[in-house]
Amino acid sequence: MTRAQQRKIEGGIALTLSTLAAFLGLFWLVFILGDVLVHGIKALNLSLFLSDPAPPGMEGGGLKNAFIGQLLITLFATMIGVPVGVLGGTFLAEYARGRKIARIISVLADIMVSVPSIVIGTFIYAILVRPMGHFSGWAGSVALSIIMIPVVLRTTEDMLSLVPWTLREAAFALGAPYYKVITQVVYRGAATGILTGILLSIARVAGETAPLLFTSFNNSFFSTDMKGPMSSLTVTIFQYAMGPYEDWHAQAWAAAFVITVFILFLTITGRLIIKWRYK
């Protein structure tokens, strides 16, 4: 065998292995999604959304409490996390643009994005749950918002930096103060991007389980009281999947199906907007 043939064969093997790796990645996606879809659709029915859980071991019942709880917790987390994140990103991209402090906060926010979410759960337990004396929906919302803030902050910073500086200069030249330039020119230019960042950050926190385990905890009854323990889909999935009843497992699959579809919908929408707007 000549040297040239040897090199060709070596290259062929390496490239084949890479191709196989890519299809292995694709295989896992299809496998996991397919499994969730098949099991989830089988267990999906109307009473899942309309009725509360039956006592353990009994047939029937639904997860209305968990759906409502998840919505409330995520909604309030968004209401806390989005303003703080957007304003914080504004500071980094506008008032502190190019300064050392902006770089430091930006790096720290990037690190915060990946900090173990369960640690944030223990933090909120210590500062909110124990002083209040009981688990609460608010504690869950605050825990999720702490995960959300760095995500929104970084995307806002990036999106505002994409708005051309000359646009701001044009507004300055008309005598507008900086806050007006930001709210009326820069925000408008970056609105789509910021909105996409918010969508993706909601997708990120909607699937979080670990920080809710000891903040909002769980509640087998219907409750809209944010001051008390509150059920969420993710914690319910954890409890039901680990539980001994077949009926629970089926409902856990159904809940997993709903949450996966919701999150993938948000993610795909976000990606499409980015592709369409920032090509």
Partner: peptide
């Protein structure tokens, strides 16, 4: 393929865990 890999990253970890168990 790029999109598929990114979707894999978007699936929440509890789904991975449950899929792993069952």
């Amino acid at each position: 393929i790029g999109a598929a890999i990114e979707l894999l990253a978007a699936i929440p970890s509890i789904i991975y865990g449950m899929w792993g168990l069952f």
